Amino acid sequence: MMIIPVTMAHHLQNIFSLYPNISNFMTMQLSRSGFGMVDGGVFTIGEIDPNYTAIANSPKLQVISHGMWFTLVDGMLINGTMYSGHGNSSSVLEGLDPSSLVAVLDSGTSLVSVPPYYTDLIYKDIPRAEPFAILPGYYKLPCDTKLNVSVVFFGQEYLIHPLDLMTIFTYNGTDICLSTFLSSNDSDKNMNLGDSFMRNIYTLFNFGNFTRSSDENPYIQLLSVTDKDVACITNNIQSLGPAVARNVTSDDSTAASTSPSPNLHTLLRNSDIIIGMLVIIAMLLLVVMVLLVRNQMKVFSRSNLKGYNAVSNLVGPLDRKTQFTYDTPYHS
């Protein structure tokens, strides 16, 4: 599920209507640990995370459609060179330059889709890189590839961590590296910026007159959270090792429909471990039940082996004459 479609706007509109004193914006940031793996995040309604207050000074990106959070992108900075245009956005807003790039921020998508022009600029000239025929739109890459890519909004550069530009995928039992920026010719949203981009920013969505007619137009603010110097230390996915790198670009969100299949070998291995533990627990429970039953049977058997024992006569020998004689004889 996207974080910014009309459906969520309706849910938040109810919240903002019930609580008019709450500022009608939400913020989100998908974080990563020092080892490069996905690790928690931030989601707020009506307030800014104290660690990212600088976002209040970020440019306000205009929302260019009604009900959806489309905004314009200047272009992409790829290995030090700025590229722009090559969009196809005439269906989004009348009067918009058809070559303009329109983007939507989507935390429900693991990867990023952009026009083929940009995927080719990022990956095509990498030595030994080639389109991956099994999954159209992907590039197969050397795992030691070093990339420097940013998305530019309103003159501001938002660096993408090199670990977010590739992902490890197991194919025929072999780990290979694939691109996380995929080719797409979507004319509504030229760039669908999923988690591979959103992990690098703190984002504020101000609903404005989406929810309150008296408010200003809705807008988006972004704050870069990827440290360029730190990103250069882990400048290729292979440097973390396959076990860690495979999890770098995975998250708890619903994967895009074009995402690679999960690592079935790992899933099956983990399933075998879990099943094995369940079998051991079941066997232990069975042994305990058998021991309990045997113990109860022994107790029951001992009580039966004693046989029948006559009850002692507490009143002494039976004296029928004494006990059954009338005091006064009966005479007919």
Rank of each mutant, 00 (worst) to 15 (best):
residue 140 K to G: 02
residue 324 F to W: 06
residue 44 T to G: 10
residue 326 Y to C: 09
residue 71 T to C: 07
residue 54 A to P: 04
residue 32 R to L: 03
residue 258 T to V: 12
residue 41 G to F: 01
residue 205 F to D: 07
residue 131 P to M: 10
residue 10 H to S: 14
residue 325 T to S: 15
residue 241 G to F: 06
residue 72 L to G: 02
residue 283 M to W: 12
residue 113 S to T: 11
residue 307 G to E: 14
residue 275 I to G: 02
residue 282 A to Y: 05
residue 34 G to D: 04
residue 46 G to E: 03
residue 172 N to R: 14
residue 108 G to Q: 03
residue 3 I to F: 08
residue 326 Y to E: 12
residue 83 Y to H: 14
residue 307 G to R: 11
residue 13 Q to I: 11
residue 244 V to P: 03
residue 130 E to A: 12
residue 324 F to T: 13
residue 314 L to V: 15
residue 274 I to Q: 10
residue 117 Y to W: 10
residue 258 T to N: 14
residue 181 F to N: 05
residue 12 L to S: 04
residue 188 D to M: 07
residue 290 V to N: 11
residue 72 L to Y: 06
residue 162 P to L: 01
residue 172 N to D: 15
residue 28 M to N: 15
residue 146 K to H: 07
residue 73 V to L: 12
residue 34 G to K: 04
residue 304 N to A: 13
residue 116 P to N: 02
residue 224 S to K: 15
residue 52 Y to T: 08
residue 113 S to V: 04
residue 63 V to N: 00
residue 204 L to N: 11
residue 194 G to W: 04
residue 100 S to C: 02
residue 314 L to F: 12
residue 79 N to K: 05
residue 6 V to W: 13
residue 207 F to Y: 15
residue 195 D to K: 00
residue 165 L to W: 03
residue 79 N to M: 04
residue 101 L to M: 03
residue 57 N to P: 02
residue 137 G to Y: 01
residue 62 Q to M: 07
residue 285 L to D: 14
residue 284 L to P: 00
residue 226 T to V: 01
residue 100 S to F: 00
residue 99 S to W: 02
residue 244 V to G: 07
residue 152 V to D: 01
residue 2 M to V: 10
residue 108 G to A: 02
residue 271 S to E: 13
residue 197 F to W: 03
residue 40 G to T: 01
residue 176 I to M: 09
residue 82 M to T: 08
